Amino acid sequence: MKAVRVHAYGKRPSVDDVPEPKVTGPFDVLVQVGAAGLCRTDLHIVEGQWAEKSGVQLPYVIGHENAGWVREVGAAVTNVAPGDAVILHPLVTCGLCRACRRGDDVHCESSKFPGIDTDGGMAEYLLTSARSVVKLADGLEPAAVAALADAGLTAYHAVRKAVPLLHPGSTCVVIGAGGLGHIGIQCLVAMTAARVIVVDPNPRARDLASELGAHEVVENGDGLDDSAHVVLDFVGEQGAERVGLAMTRRAGSYFVIGYGGKVDIPTIDLISTERNIIGNLVGSYTDLDELMTLAAQGRVTLHTKQYPLASVNEAMDDLEAGRLQGRGILVP
Rank of each mutant, 00 (worst) to 15 (best):
S132V: 07
A209Y: 05
D207I: 04
N220C: 12
R206Y: 06
D138P: 15
S170T: 11
R195F: 10
L188S: 02
L208K: 01
L224P: 08
G121T: 05
R195K: 15
F234V: 04
A130R: 11
I185L: 08
G152S: 03
S132A: 15
A193F: 07
L127Y: 04
A151K: 09
M191I: 00
D200P: 06
P201D: 11
D200E: 09
P168K: 07
N202C: 09
G223N: 14
L212N: 08
G169D: 04
N220I: 12
V174R: 00
V196L: 08
D119T: 01
G223H: 14
L224W: 11
G169R: 02
L136N: 11
A137N: 05
P164W: 09
D150T: 04
L224G: 07
P203E: 01
R249K: 14
D138A: 15
G213T: 09
L165F: 10
K161R: 15
I197A: 06
V230L: 10
L212K: 14
H157P: 00
A123C: 08
A137C: 03
I175H: 12
T192S: 07
A251N: 14
A137D: 11
V145P: 13
A193S: 15
V163K: 05
T171P: 02
G181Y: 02
L245G: 14
D222E: 15
C187Y: 01
D222L: 06
S129P: 02
L245C: 12
V173K: 05
A177M: 09
V174P: 01
V230A: 11
